[in-house]
Computed example of a mutant assay.
Amino acid sequence: MALGVALDLGTSGYRGHLVDLDKKGKILATAITMRHPLPGANIMDHLHFWMENGPDVGHRIVIETVDKLIGTMGAKPEEIERVSVCGNPAQMSMFEKIEIRDLAFAGQSILKRLNVKVPERKAHSLKAEELGMSSVRRTAEVRIPPSIRHEIGADALAMIMKTGLMEKKETCMVTDYGTNAEMGLFYKGELYTGSAAAGPAMEGQSIDFGMLAAPQAISDIALGENGRWYNIVLSDKLHPVRSALVDPRTGEEQRLDGVVARGITGTGTVAAMAIGLETGIIKLPYVDTPDRKIHLTNGIYFGEEDVREAGKATGAIRAGHRTLIEEVGVDDKEIKTMYMAGASGTYVDPIKAQTV
Rank of each mutant, 00 (worst) to 15 (best):
L234D: 04
G263M: 01
L69Q: 12
D247G: 12
M1L: 01
V260N: 10
I317Q: 07
A222P: 06
E304V: 07
I335A: 07
W229P: 00
E81G: 10
L38N: 04
I232N: 07
G87A: 02
L9K: 04
I300Q: 05
R35P: 08
A222I: 13
D220H: 08
G311V: 04
E334V: 11
V66E: 02
G258E: 15
L38D: 00
D288N: 03
G263S: 04
C172N: 08
T11L: 04
A198E: 03
R121Y: 00
T267N: 03
L191D: 08
G4E: 02
I80M: 01
K336W: 12
K76D: 13
K162A: 10
D102P: 01
A6G: 10
N88A: 05
R35N: 11
T267Q: 04
M273I: 05
S147R: 12
Q354I: 15
L165P: 10
Q254P: 00
S147C: 07
N88W: 11
G299M: 02
R255N: 14
G74H: 15
A154G: 06
G194P: 03
G320E: 02
G329M: 08
R138W: 09
A316Q: 14
L245E: 14
I80H: 02
S235L: 04
L18P: 08
L234N: 09
A158M: 04
I70V: 06
D176C: 00
L223I: 10
D20Q: 05
L9S: 09
R308W: 12
K312C: 11
D176G: 07
R113E: 14
E79V: 01
A123N: 10
S135H: 04
H36N: 11
Q205V: 11
R249G: 06
A158W: 13
